[in-house]
Every structure is written in structure tokens, then in C-alpha cells.
Design a protein around this nucleic acid. Sequence first.
DNA 1: ACCTGTGAATCGATTCACAGCC
DNA 2: GGCTGTGAATCGATTCACAGGT
Lengths: 212, 212
Amino acid sequence: MTSRGDRTVPQASIERLPGYLQVLSDLAARGVTGTSSAELAGLAGVGPAQLRKDLSHLGSHGTRGVGYDVVHLRERVRAALGVAQELSVAIVGVGNLGHALANYSGFTARGFTVAALFDSSPEMIGTVVAGVVVEDSARLADELAGRGVAIVVIAVPGERAQAVCDAVVAAGVREVLNFAPRVLQVPPGVELRSVDLGSELQILAFHSRNRP
Amino acid sequence: MTSRGDRTVPQASIERLPGYLQVLSDLAARGVTGTSSAELAGLAGVGPAQLRKDLSHLGSHGTRGVGYDVVHLRERVRAALGVAQELSVAIVGVGNLGHALANYSGFTARGFTVAALFDSSPEMIGTVVAGVVVEDSARLADELAGRGVAIVVIAVPGERAQAVCDAVVAAGVREVLNFAPRVLQVPPGVELRSVDLGSELQILAFHSRNRP
DNA sequence: ACCTGTGAATCGATTCACAGCC
DNA sequence: GGCTGTGAATCGATTCACAGGT
């Protein structure tokens, strides 16, 4: 569920890069220095040809007849994903889910900084969550620009999601990750991804029902 | 990130059905009785032709020259997704995220019952979360079968995810939703979907970096 | 001898455009 | 006249298979 963005690297490849980065980091942590498309593909759960084709979009970083250098390749994938420089993220909605997301460790571990939290309920505003003071959602526009936020995560109830999304886009943010169970509309040029627990379960339910 | 399942309805279509169900429920709630592929497509953020093709996989449920009956179509999509009968879900890992998931309202609202919670930390076991007693993860195998769990949600730290997944699959569960930041391996015939916050952010970071 | 990088072939999914029906 | 349902055409992504380099 993605609005069109650039090209040169196909969208389908981009979506697999984080998985490759993960297994590369894992190999590096275990002290493995060299690997092959077959090994990487096995760990990432894809075919070797697909992995090579995906990596070829980032340039030629292996050695024919030998394989890939784990650390070098990891840096290339990291750079391609834009995770080399730190990016600031804001979370709107500090309920159950927003709270959990703010405290999510793998978050900072992967180069993202929680730069701002927003909520609209008076008893939430001003409290400190994950070391950040919760701001009033009404002040979204002012704060986002000031803190250099590149990505906004929406974790508000469905009814408010579109309004929050509109405000965020109006404030100039062009990358939005939505956890509210709604289909959101964004203008062209804004990249929207949606994660909905209910949808995921329904997709699994479909397969559960249609068994051979 | 899906292992191959059945056919007749293409995977890509299946993944859009929850979105259609959502906008249909929304229309129904607003008292709208009839609609068209153009309207539905607009609300769901896809093209009209794509929507008609997707729905055609479920059979012919519109009226030529007129459009679709909202309530009838909603029931057809619900039935196709297998959400007509209630399904039981278990959540393994009651940390920040597991906690939030257990309390997620849209959960029961969409025909899923939280039938069991598991955790391995002694101070968590025995506590009540979202009205359910947290069991010891060691007793996974016994409890899953007994409670008729169809879908398991994994919300444990990355290091433990594969072990939990193996245990769950060994217990006969064939639908797994993974929130841990790891690529998991499952045997053929098991449907695995993975949602990773870090990966989603990295994909957005890619687009952020590669702007025209 | 071996493994990468990649054009060519295949496969599947999206879009077009119109026949069929109300 | 208008909108669905669908074959045909297009587009993109995956897989094959081998040439290129170590």
C-alpha cells in the first residue's frame, strides 16, 4: 500500500532491502566476514537469483568467483536505505500502541531518533514518555518543522487519522507511516505506508479458510 | 513477505480485500446503501478496473448498469476473508508491544478473539492482561491445541522469535503473524506474515533520500 | 572451478477497452 | 445510458541460464 515514488530501484526490491540488512548485520555480529548469494538468500528467505538482481540495482559490490564481503555489503545497503544519517521521527497518538512504539528499542538501534510525541488528551500532554515530553497535537504544525522531523508515525484512533494525516502533510512531511485502521488519502509526492493489525489477521484468516 | 498459499484468488487481490471491507463497513455505517466501482475505488485508493477485477474473483455480486449493494457486497467480502466465523488468536510475548496488541480494540471488533497470552518472564506469568491470564511460554504446546487457536501473533524479542515460531508450528498452528525484527523460517504450508516497524521506517527513509 | 552480474524468457499482476446486461 | 464483468494487451517483477571475471 504505497503511493508511487522514484524509480531506478524497483519498489519490490526496496521492500526486501531491510531484510538483507538484517541478515547482514546478524552475520557481521557473528564475526562472519564473507558470504555468497546462496547463503544470504537462504537466510533472507528468497531465491539466490532474486537477491543478486536486487543487489545489482545498488551497483556491483561482490567479487565474481568469490562472493560478498559482509561488512562492505552491509554498508552499501545501509547507505542505499538512507539509514547512514540519523533521521528524526515523530509519533502522533500516545495511547497503547503509540506508547509501545515510543519505547521500541529496535527503533533507535536502527538509526532513528524519536524527536517528538503528540497527543490530544489533556492528561497525556506534558507527561514524559521514552524521555520525550508529549506535546499537544494542536501544535503539530509548529513543532514538526522546528525539530526537523522527516517521518511521522500515526497511531491515533481511526476517526482522527485522516485529519492528523492532513495536518502532517500540510506541515511539509512527505513520509508517513499509518497504524490506524483506515485507508488514508495523501496528495501525490507523499509516501504513505499503512500497517493494520486487523488487515494482517484477515489475510491470514483467508488462508486459514482456504486450505487444500 | 508471505509464503505461497492457495490460488484462485491472487495473493495481490487478497491483500486488498481488508481495505475494501473497511470502506464498505464505513459506507454501511453512514447509511449508504448503493455504490459503484468508481466510488469504492476512490475510497480504497485503487483504480476502478482493479477493484472490479478483484471483486470478480469472489463471484459476480454487482448489477450491470447500476452498481453494488453495500451490505450485500460487505457480506460477500467478509465471507471470502473467513471473518464470518470467529477466529481465536494467541499472542506470545506480553511486553510493550504484546500488551498494546492484546488491548487493541479493533481486534475483537473485527471478529477475532484473544484466546491466550504467553510470556516467559516470571513476574508476567499469572497476571491478567485484557481479561486473559498470562500463561508460561513453556506451556505453549499444551495450551494452543486446547484452546483452538488458529492464528498466533509473535511479539517476543528478536533472539527468541525463531524458537517460539518453531514451537508454535510444531503445535500445529499454520498461520503466524510476526512482529519481531527477524526473518523467520517456516516449513511449506505455514503462512507467515511479518510486520517490522524498523523495516517500514527504512523503506520510507529510502524514499526520503531519493527525492526528485 | 566458482560465483557474480545481467540479458532473455517467463510469469503474474495491472490496465485497457468493450461486450453484456440492467 | 450507464456500469459491471472480463478477455486482450500491457506492464513489471521473477527466474533462468550463461557470459564475464577472479
